[in-house]
Design a protein around this nucleic acid. Structure first.
Lengths: 151, 151
DNA sequence: TATTGTTATACTCTATAACTATA
DNA sequence: TATAGTTATAGAGTATAACAATA
């Protein structure tokens, strides 16, 4: 039967919905939206950087980053500092509150790992990871093919 | 090691991003946004119905449905018909174009099943489905607990 | 009185285009 | 001439609150 394969996709689609809900709860508690949290996450990985870098990393326009940073400045998660050598650029810099928020996101993620996989036998987790590796590869390929086809 | 469990969550998070991208491509080709496609999908399942029903099914406010239906009417996917017995309500009804769009969504989903799982052995698919069943259960429970805790 | 859907208002995310200041 | 970030404008999705018409 092919029913299991259809069911597998249905499960993955439901998963995206539920993961989104779960994320949203934690973010709201921290006073963040998804997009702002994503920026903060990238910023934490890169260290203080110009907005241009964030725009490239997030895959959005420079204008969008202006808006996201505006919101994060207003709510106290980052500041705009002067760039030491390029006076066109600003150095987006996390505040202590911003750093704490990233730590909270990280903790939430670790907690979620425990909730979802803590009781799953190691062999089963390994099988899942192996299967998902292939699925992700094929999904990336499908997206690339679609993007290429409409070029 | 717990590395595999962390990796499993990372994979699932990446999956949500990629599935979203893949969806978006197909929807744009049909002239639909995600929210409007979701409404159309629910509408197809329920048959012509009042906006109130759609608001409940989508988990959004009545106002939001007004906006979504406005957009779908403007782009020719649905019409607002008079309700036969309740003159307060409208019957949102798919047009032929709306029905064709849902058929296209369904076909795209079937194609994706083939791309992602077509070459995966049945036993591996069955294992995936079994594992994901448990994961989804625990995720639902975690969300319910969070919602209950902040009540 | 309760319900359906609307107008009014506001916030977030996103985009393109034109512009300023600086490299 | 090219780049960083802004203002200007627009569209989509979401929400609350007040209101009209109808049940």
């Amino acid at each position: 039967m092919d029913g299991d394969r259809t069911r597998a996709l249905d499960q993955l689609l439901e998963l995206t919905v539920l993961l989104g809900q779960d994320m949203a709860v934690g973010l709201a508690r921290d006073g963040l939206t998804e997009s702002r949290a994503h920026l903060l996450w990238v910023l934490d990985a890169s260290g203080p950087c110009p907005q241009r870098h964030l725009a490239d990393a997030l895959g959005v326009t420079a204008r969008t980053v202006t808006g996201l940073v505006d919101g994060l400045v207003d709510t106290g998660f980052v500041t705009r500092e002067t760039h030491p050598t390029d006076r066109r650029a600003t150095l987006v810099t996390p505040t202590p509150r911003g750093l704490a928020a990233v730590a909270s996101l990280r903790a939430g993620q670790a907690e979620l790992v425990g909730q979802l996989f803590g009781d799953v036998p190691e062999a089963e987790v390994a099988a899942l990871v192996g299967t998902m590796d292939g699925v992700l590869d094929r999904l990336r390929a499908a997206i690339a093919a679609e993007a290429g086809g409409s070029r």
